[in-house]
């Protein structure tokens, strides 16, 4: 397994000016401003192997996007080293740039008033993709994401999900070896999110493209990633497989059962693992391994179950656990 991405002691500091409200302070700011520093990324190190899908998880402002931007060469680190595909991203060499793609969930790289196809053709020119490779990739990607109908529709008339899929296609036409995704599923509906996740998984299996994605949706990470790096306040607080993380910090899942009528306390005591009761709704905290059995037990019992929900403990709880854990 060769290392595609190597990051050593990476640090990035931003400076900014303190701005207080009020007219008087605005005048004061004309003459004297206080410069403050924020360490967006604080001495982090990690490696990523070829073909891995690694997730960067963390709250807003944690340093995920900053790291991604340093890996793509947009920002220069204050300290530390980065090596991607044996290149130093800071140098912004064309040879390196032709081998990776960056897709940012909230930023639109397609031309607004034109159909995605035009942006695809433009990328073909910019990345110097041969006609053959372009046609092959285009067919494969469009089919896989099921957007045959919309590539000739103006981008501004597309839904957010269709736009995101088109952005993905545009970024993969030059067969990049590394794909950086920044919040790719943000703002999308559940179905679109799933489609994109499925696509990325299959694409990675077929092409062995190394994928690095940032997100604050746990579902993205769980569905896609082999490995997970959690960042908070610029520091890495976890770097390992998802399973290990789950076992260690999120050992439980939340089962919500909606009953037809209120269940007596006695009955519930028999079930054990009760977490919270809200009239006809009862929440159970059950360890991962026991979820299947527990749910089966509830559903096959003669309790008047109307509905049952099994949900992941949310990201923030897990992260909270990781901190306190």
């Amino acid at each position: 397994m060769n290392k595609i991405i190597e990051v050593k002691n990476l640090t990035k500091t931003y400076d900014y000016f303190k701005k207080e409200p009020g007219l008087k302070n605005s005048f004061k700011n004309l003459f004297k401003r206080k410069k403050l520093f924020k360490k967006a990324v604080d001495d982090i190190s990690f490696d990523i192997n070829e073909g891995e899908i690694v997730g960067f998880l963390g709250p807003n402002g944690a340093g995920k996007t900053t790291t991604l931007k340093m890996l793509s060469g947009i920002l220069t680190p204050n300290k530390g080293e980065i090596k991607v595909l044996d290149y130093n991203p800071e140098k912004r060499e064309a040879e390196y740039q032709r081998q990776f793609a960056l897709v940012m969930g909230q930023k639109n790289q397609l031309w607004w008033d034109l159909p995605p196809m035009e942006s695809f053709l433009l990328n073909k020119e910019i990345y110097g993709v041969s006609k053959q490779e372009f046609t092959e990739n285009l067919d494969e990607l469009v089919k896989a994401l099921k957007i045959e109908d919309i590539i000739d529709k103006q981008v501004r008339k597309l839904s957010l999900g269709e736009r995101m899929k088109s952005e993905l296609v545009a970024s993969l036409l030059h067969s990049p070896k590394v794909l950086f995704l920044d919040e790719p599923t943000i703002g999308l509906d559940v179905i679109a999110q799933k489609n994109i996740r499925d696509f990325l998984k299959k694409y990675n299996q077929k092409r062995k493209t190394t994928i690095l994605l940032t997100s604050h949706y746990m579902e993205d990470i769980v569905a896609l990633c082999d490995r997970l790096i959690i960042i908070n306040e610029g520091k890495i607080i976890y770097n390992g497989s998802i399973n290990d993380l789950m076992k260690k910090y999120a050992p439980n899942k939340m089962i919500t059962v909606f009953f037809e009528k209120e269940i007596s306390a006695n009955e519930l005591k028999k079930l054990d693992k009760v977490y919270k009761i809200e009239d006809c709704k009862v929440l159970f905290k059950v360890s991962r391994e026991e979820v299947k059995n527990f749910a089966t037990k509830i559903l096959s019992s003669d309790l008047p179950v109307k509905d049952i929900e099994i949900s992941e403990v949310d990201v923030d709880s897990i992260i909270r656990n990781v901190f306190t854990g």
Binding site: G22, L23, S26, F27, N29, L30
Partner: peptide, 8 residues
């Protein structure tokens, strides 16, 4: 006016 000061 404040805003104008910022965008000086």
């Amino acid at each position: 006016i404040q805003r104008s000061l910022i965008y000086r």
